[in-house]
Structures are given as structure tokens and as C-alpha cells.
């Protein structure tokens, strides 16, 4: 039982991390139908910028806030300078633009913060909590808690605010949204900024657990993409479920089967889910417009 609990905790922690990254994917996909392959780099930027500011003598909270603002600015710049000018390009062209952006951001981070890896101090200490013979780091609770808050926040935003509804409307039908007077350009900027800020927040939350360096974005981005797809693109709840499914499956497979193929688990799940449910667990069935 203690063993199972330990695997469960590990799975929940990783799952919440993937879910946080997946939410960023979802936000951008919802408004612009672009998969942003630089999403993982936002996570990296958030963590490293905080580390850099801390080293420069800024206290943790302002450093974290500043890092989130900086990353949001990077997200807005990405939309304004790269996505918007190419908005009529093919899906695969947009994919390559965001891949180019991820290479660029990684290159910049390596120049600014170097190639070493860094750790942020845990928010509330490193003493593990003991529950039923298994241990859990307090920072894991932070990650899980903030993920829940963000999901609730996004729900409120999309369901209750005019702006959120404007984003949703844009996602469903851009032309119709424009006709009813929604400023599409602003909605897109907003969703990129928000998504980047979300990524940065994730990066700061997880840095005490996973450490951070200029390369952490790649795999986190891929796993987050996995989680977003498993959940069905464009669904916030789906992203969280997707993240937890991937995280728990990895931990359980490692614990009860073998650790040799742990990093393949996420991708096996993807293939299985997509073969049986081509739009993910919560995705809308696609229909072709002729």
C-alpha cells in the first residue's frame, strides 16, 4: 500500500506538471488553432528568469512576478511578430515557425543564463510529508493546488467574462466573431500572452522539484502536447485529465512493469487513445466543411 501511494504521489506530481503545460497549449489552440511548439520554452523562460533575478538580489515573489510578465511579453511578441504575419499559412508552416521560435528562445536562454542547471528554493521547505508510509514534497502540493486554481480560474474566465466568451467565440468561428464586433487581433494577443504567463508560472512552480536549465523546455513541451492531445485539444478539463493520465501511467508503468521504457509510455498512450478516439478523450468530433 505504501508502495502504491508512493507511485500515486509521483504520478500526481508529474501529472500536474504536464497538465499545467498542456493548459498553455490548449489556450493558444482554442483561440488560434495553432499548436505552439515553443510552449515548453515558456516554461523554461519562467524558471530561468526567476533564477536569474534571484541571483541579482530580487526577492522570490517579485522575481517570480517579473519573470511571468517577461515571459508573457515574449508570448505576445511571438504572436505579433511571427504568427500574425503568417496567419494564412498552412498548418505545417505554422508548426515550423513555432519550432523556429523554440530554437531561438533556447539559444537566447543559453546565452543569457548559461548551460548550467539551477534550482529554485522550495516555497515552503524541503521536509517531506509522510502519508501512509509514503512521502510527498510540500512543493508537489503547491503544483497540484495551483493547477486546480488555474483550471477554476480559466473556467470562470471562459464562462463568466465577456473577454473569455470573446476568445471562445473566436475559437468557434473567427469570421462570425469578427462580425459581432470582437477584436480578433486583441483576442489572439491576449491568448498568447496568457498562455506564456501560464507556462512561466508552471516553470517557476516546478523548478524546485525538477530543476531548470535552458534545455528543460523540449521534453516538457512534448509531454504537455501529449497531455493536451489525450484530453482532446482545446478542452481545459481535458488537458488536466490528459496530464494526470500520462503522469500516472508513467509512474505506474515504472513501478509495476519496468522503468526501461518509461519515457515511451506517454507516446504509447497517445497512439492507443487516438486509434480508438481520433479526437482525444474530450475533443469535439471534427467535421469537414466542404
Amino acid at each position: 500500500m505504501a508502495e502504491f501511494l508512493q507511485f500515486l504521489f509521483a504520478g500526481l506530481t508529474s501529472g500536474a506538471i504536464y497538465a499545467l503545460v498542456a493548459l498553455g497549449f490548449t489556450l493558444i489552440y482554442s483561440s488560434s488553432h495553432v499548436i505552439n511548439f515553443a510552449q515548453g520554452e515558456f516554461v523554461m523562460l519562467g524558471g530561468l528568469a526567476t533564477v536569474g533575478l534571484l541571483a541579482a538580489g530580487v526577492p522570490l515573489l517579485p522575481a517570480a512576478l517579473l519573470a511571468i510578465v517577461l515571459t508573457a511579453a515574449a508570448g505576445i511578441a511571438l504572436e505579433k511578430l511571427a504568427i500574425e504575419p503568417a496567419r494564412n499559412a498552412a498548418v505545417v508552416t505554422l508548426i515550423i515557425i513555432t519550432i523556429g521560435a523554440s530554437i531561438l528562445l533556447r539559444g537566447a536562454a543559453q546565452l543569457i543564463w548559461g548551460k548550467d542547471y539551477h534550482r529554485l528554493p522550495a516555497f515552503t521547505g524541503e521536509t517531506p510529508l509522510e502519508i501512509g508510509g509514503a512521502t510527498l514534497l510540500p512543493q508537489s502540493l503547491w503544483v497540484i493546488g495551483v493547477t486546480i486554481l488555474i483550471v477554476l480560474g480559466l473556467r470562470w474566465f471562459f464562462g463568466r467574462t465577456l473577454l473569455g466568451k470573446a476568445v471562445l467565440a473566436t475559437s468557434h468561428n473567427r469570421l462570425a466573431a469578427q462580425l459581432v464586433g470582437i477584436d480578433i487581433g486583441f483576442v489572439l494577443l491576449l491568448s498568447y500572452g496568457l498562455s506564456a504567463a501560464l507556462g512561466a508560472l508552471a516553470g517557476i512552480l516546478i523548478a524546485p522539484i525538477t530543476l531548470t536549465s535552458y534545455t528543460v523546455g523540449t521534453m516538457l513541451g512534448l509531454k504537455g502536447f501529449c497531455a493536451a492531445i489525450v484530453g482532446g485539444l482545446g478542452s481545459g478539463a481535458g488537458a488536466v485529465v490528459g496530464g494526470l493520465v500520462v503522469g500516472l501511467a508513467e509512474a505506474m508503468a515504472t513501478g509495476y512493469v519496468s522503468s526501461a521504457y518509461k519515457d515511451a509510455v506517454a507516446f504509447v498512450i497517445i497512439l492507443v487513445v487516438l486509434v480508438f478516439m481520433p479526437s482525444g478523450l474530450f475533443g469535439r468530433r471534427g467535421t469537414d466543411r466542404v
Binding site: P85, A90, I96, I103, L104, G107
Partner: peptide
Amino acid sequence: EHLVLGAILMGMMIFLP
């Protein structure tokens, strides 16, 4: 190197989609 490579990729795809 990576900074330049990323910029080249983005630039080409933005201006020559």
C-alpha cells in the same frame, strides 16, 4: 548559432510561407 538558426527558420517561413 542556435539563435541565428531559429531566426533564419522563422524569418523564411514568415516571409516565404
